[in-house]
Nucleic acid binder design. Structure first.
Lengths: 173, 173
DNA sequence: CAAGATTGAAGTGTCAATCTTG
DNA sequence: CAAGATTGACACTTCAATCTTG
């Protein structure tokens, strides 16, 4: 194959390759924007409800994605963009604070089942409002409807087949 | 003021508010795309040169942004999206491995001056190539030129005044 | 005391090893 | 042994306390 032409790259006289400003802005912007939004939402939740964004997402999956309010650890893990061990620790924390219960699956004694408690449902309802508020203020209020669609399109292209699937059923978050 | 209309939000019968799929895709896509790109670039650099993305950025600032190859800690800190303590630790590590030197500023004995070494310049040159390669493969090859401009525009809108400024001079990264 | 910088303690996250059950 | 899940050790990051010099 012929050597792939690199876009947006110039080699400077010091021998260090550089990016064209348009490309640098896109790259840096992507990383910083995600960081600002993520950190902001996390802080909103912590201040209002004493729970982080990751813990919130776990409650969300339990309460909104599953009719029953319970999922096996494995399902929780495959839905969250987090490692097995991180989910395990987050669930342990949520259990300690009373927002979920842990039990053993009847059909397979190896598996653990996580269930959201009534207190967890209350927290979820309140936290979801906080979360959407923050999302509106930090992200959507700054974009037009067309911008939002564009952002979804661009990030899906970047992610390729790894793109988050939000088509089936209602999509919380 | 009249209550601001929330876009893209629907309240579900279970009392938990949800996002329209288009909005959820934009939000999740932003976070995941940044994560994938950032983690991928970091791993590329670690495998090829035993240095992380943050450490690389510090070398880049020293070698490409400054003519002399040295900056005071304070300048380094204000240019990196990292805490004071993180930069301090990263510089300590780079010093331990011989890629930078630390000394005391002559004009103000409180300040520390960080200087890139010849070994650091060699590493920088090689790592910059790896970095741009990864950027091309993981980000730019998946987007058209117009997409790249769009991504820059959208993230600048999201970041508002906090947007990274890549206009002045050559822009590495 | 204020400014520049480093360090201790703690939170968050991962990998690999481990434990338990099928 | 394989699958499901937890745990120990470690890496990265930040906050607040500290140390040093102006």
């Amino acid at each position: 194959v012929p050597p792939r032409r690199k876009v947006g790259v110039r080699t400077h006289e010091d021998g260090v390759a550089h990016l064209d400003p348009t490309y640098a802005a896109a790259f840096l912007g992507l990383l910083r924007a995600a960081e600002v939004v993520d950190a902001g939402l996390d802080q909103d939740l912590r201040e209002a409800h004493g729970i982080g964004l990751r813990g919130f997402e776990i409650l969300l999956h339990l309460g909104a994605f599953s009719e029953v309010g319970s999922l096996r650890m494995g399902q929780l893990i495959s839905q969250a963009p987090l490692s097995q061990s991180r989910v395990s620790r987050l669930v342990a924390e949520l259990s300690r604070t009373g927002y979920v219960d842990r039990s053993t699956a009847v059909e397979d004694t190896r598996a653990a089942v996580v269930t959201i408690t009534p207190a967890g449902r209350n927290l979820l309802r309140a936290a979801a409002a906080t979360h959407l508020d923050g999302l509106e203020r930090r992200l959507f209020a700054r974009l037009t409807k067309a911008d939002v669609a564009e952002l979804g399109r661009l990030t899906a292209k970047i992610l390729g087949s790894d793109a988050p699937r939000t088509g089936r059923g209602r999509s919380p978050l």
